[in-house]
Deep mutational scan, measured.
Amino acid sequence: NITNLCPFDEVFNATRFASVYAWNRKRISNCVADYSVLYNLAPFFTFKCYGVSPTKLNDLCFTNVYADSFVIRGDEVRQIAPGQTGNIADYNYKLPDDFTGCVIAWNSNKLDSKVSGNYNYLYRLFRKSNLKPFERDISTEIYQAGNKPCNGVAGFNCYFPLRSYSFRPTYGVGHQPYRVVVLSFELLHAPATVCGPKKST
């Protein structure tokens, strides 16, 4: 009989979030998941669920729940959905087409922007091929755009693959930082360890 609440607040209220290319994953298990708490945590810009209804979450049980978190800019949030393409979905964080879970995003301009520009958040701009779903690539190998090998040196047709967002508070919403948490629900042929409040007794 599990009584402890799932530590969603640790994920959502973390002081620092990860850069999207090096997104963070927390496995959540053996706890009571009260998803209604999430609705009250922040004024969400996005709370979209796929393959599951957000209002039914509190009635369900899962084997595992994974919470992935990272920062992107406002106009990239739409890429965090099944079947999307674009720089983020292709080279940084890719959801599977049959994704079961929820994408939660909110504006973090007050936390993640600086007047002089916050350069701490990076994204991958160049990659030889698209990522597979939930693949994480943290390599910093020089990207070869031409025929000549780069031998690890940046220059003509040889690019450092990561680029930094420079978040400034005066930017338009599309270029402001957004914190994203992706909850993916895993149903294996194994005992369910993460249940809503109704199912945990």
Rank of each mutant, 00 (worst) to 15 (best):
N1W: 08
I2H: 13
T3C: 07
T3R: 12
T3H: 11
N4I: 09
N4Q: 14
N4W: 09
N4L: 09
L5I: 13
P7F: 08
F8C: 04
F8G: 05
F8S: 04
D9C: 07
E10S: 11
E10V: 09
E10Q: 12
V11D: 05
F12V: 09
F12C: 06
F12P: 04
N13R: 10
N13A: 09
A14S: 10
A14Y: 06
R16I: 14
R16V: 15
R16P: 10
F17W: 15
F17S: 04
F17P: 05
S19F: 02
V20M: 00
V20H: 00
V20S: 04
Y21A: 04
Y21R: 02
W23H: 04
W23P: 04
N24T: 15
N24C: 09
R25Q: 04
R25A: 02
K26Y: 09
K26F: 09
S29E: 11
N30F: 09
N30M: 08
N30E: 08
N30V: 06
N30L: 07
C31E: 06
C31P: 06
V32S: 10
A33E: 05
A33N: 07
Y35D: 07
Y35L: 14
Y35F: 15
S36L: 08
V37H: 12
L38R: 05
Y39I: 13
N40K: 14
N40F: 09
N40L: 08
N40C: 07
P43A: 10
F44M: 14
F47K: 10
F47W: 15
K48F: 05
C49T: 03
Y50I: 05
Y50R: 04
G51A: 07
G51N: 11
V52Y: 10
V52G: 06
V52K: 07
V52H: 09
S53T: 12
S53M: 12
S53W: 08
S53C: 07
P54V: 14
P54Q: 14
T55A: 14
T55G: 14
K56T: 11
L57G: 09
N58H: 13
N58C: 07
N58D: 14
N58V: 08
N58R: 12
D59V: 07
D59L: 08
C61K: 10
F62Y: 12
F62I: 12
F62P: 09
T63C: 08
T63H: 12
T63R: 13
N64V: 15
N64Y: 14
N64M: 12
V65H: 05
V65P: 03
V65E: 02
V65T: 09
Y66G: 03
Y66E: 07
Y66T: 13
A67F: 08
A67M: 11
A67K: 05
A67R: 05
D68W: 04
D68E: 02
S69Y: 09
S69I: 04
S69Q: 06
F70H: 01
V71P: 00
V71E: 00
I72R: 02
R73F: 00
R73T: 05
R73P: 04
G74C: 02
D75T: 07
D75K: 07
E76D: 07
E76Q: 10
R78C: 07
R78K: 14
I80Y: 01
I80D: 00
I80G: 00
A81M: 06
A81I: 04
P82F: 02
P82D: 01
G83I: 05
G83Y: 11
Q84I: 09
Q84N: 07
G86C: 02
G86A: 03
G86W: 02
N87C: 13
A89H: 05
D90F: 09
D90C: 09
Y91C: 05
N92D: 00
N92Q: 02
N92V: 02
N92P: 02
N92L: 01
Y93C: 00
Y93P: 00
L95T: 04
L95C: 04
D97S: 12
D98E: 11
T100R: 13
T100H: 12
G101R: 02
C102E: 01
I104F: 15
I104T: 08
I104W: 13
A105H: 09
A105G: 06
A105Q: 05
N107W: 02
N107R: 04
S108P: 00
S108D: 00
N109Y: 04
N109C: 05
K110E: 09
K110V: 08
K110L: 08
K110A: 10
S113C: 03
K114L: 10
K114M: 11
V115E: 10
V115Y: 09
V115H: 10
V115F: 08
S116D: 13
G117S: 04
G117D: 03
N118K: 04
Y119K: 12
Y119A: 08
Y119S: 07
Y119C: 06
N120C: 07
N120I: 07
N120E: 13
Y121S: 05
L122G: 12
L122E: 11
Y123R: 04
Y123S: 13
Y123T: 11
R124C: 00
L125M: 11
R127W: 02
R127N: 03
K128A: 12
K128F: 08
K128E: 11
K128C: 08
S129D: 13
S129V: 12
N130S: 15
N130I: 13
L131S: 02
L131D: 00
K132N: 12
K132A: 12
P133D: 05
P133L: 03
F134H: 10
F134L: 08
F134G: 14
E135W: 05
E135G: 09
E135I: 05
E135Q: 13
R136G: 03
R136K: 12
R136C: 05
D137H: 04
I138V: 14
I138G: 08
I138C: 11
I138H: 08
S139V: 05
T140I: 09
T140N: 12
E141G: 11
E141Y: 08
E141F: 08
E141V: 10
I142L: 10
I142D: 00
I142V: 11
Q144H: 06
A145T: 05
G146N: 03
G146V: 02
G146W: 05
N147P: 11
N147Y: 07
N147V: 07
K148V: 14
P149K: 12
P149C: 07
C150S: 00
C150N: 01
N151L: 12
N151E: 12
A154Y: 05
A154R: 15
A154E: 14
G155Q: 10
G155F: 04
F156K: 06
N157T: 02
N157H: 01
N157P: 01
N157D: 04
Y159G: 00
Y159R: 02
Y159I: 00
P161I: 04
L162C: 03
R163K: 15
R163Y: 15
S164Y: 06
S164C: 06
Y165N: 01
Y165G: 00
F167D: 00
R168K: 04
R168A: 02
P169T: 04
Y171D: 00
Y171A: 01
G172D: 00
G172E: 00
V173W: 10
V173D: 11
V173P: 07
G174Q: 06
H175I: 01
Q176E: 00
Q176T: 01
Y178P: 00
Y178T: 07
Y178I: 09
R179T: 00
V180P: 00
V181S: 03
V181P: 00
L183F: 09
S184G: 13
S184M: 09
S184A: 10
E186S: 12
E186P: 08
E186N: 14
L187F: 12
L187V: 14
L187S: 15
L187K: 14
L188Y: 12
L188E: 14
H189E: 15
P191F: 09
P191K: 14
P191Y: 10
P191G: 13
P191C: 09
A192V: 13
A192K: 13
T193V: 11
V194N: 12
C195R: 08
G196E: 11
G196K: 11
G196Y: 10
P197G: 14
P197A: 15
K198L: 14
T201D: 13
T201C: 10
T201R: 14
T201H: 14
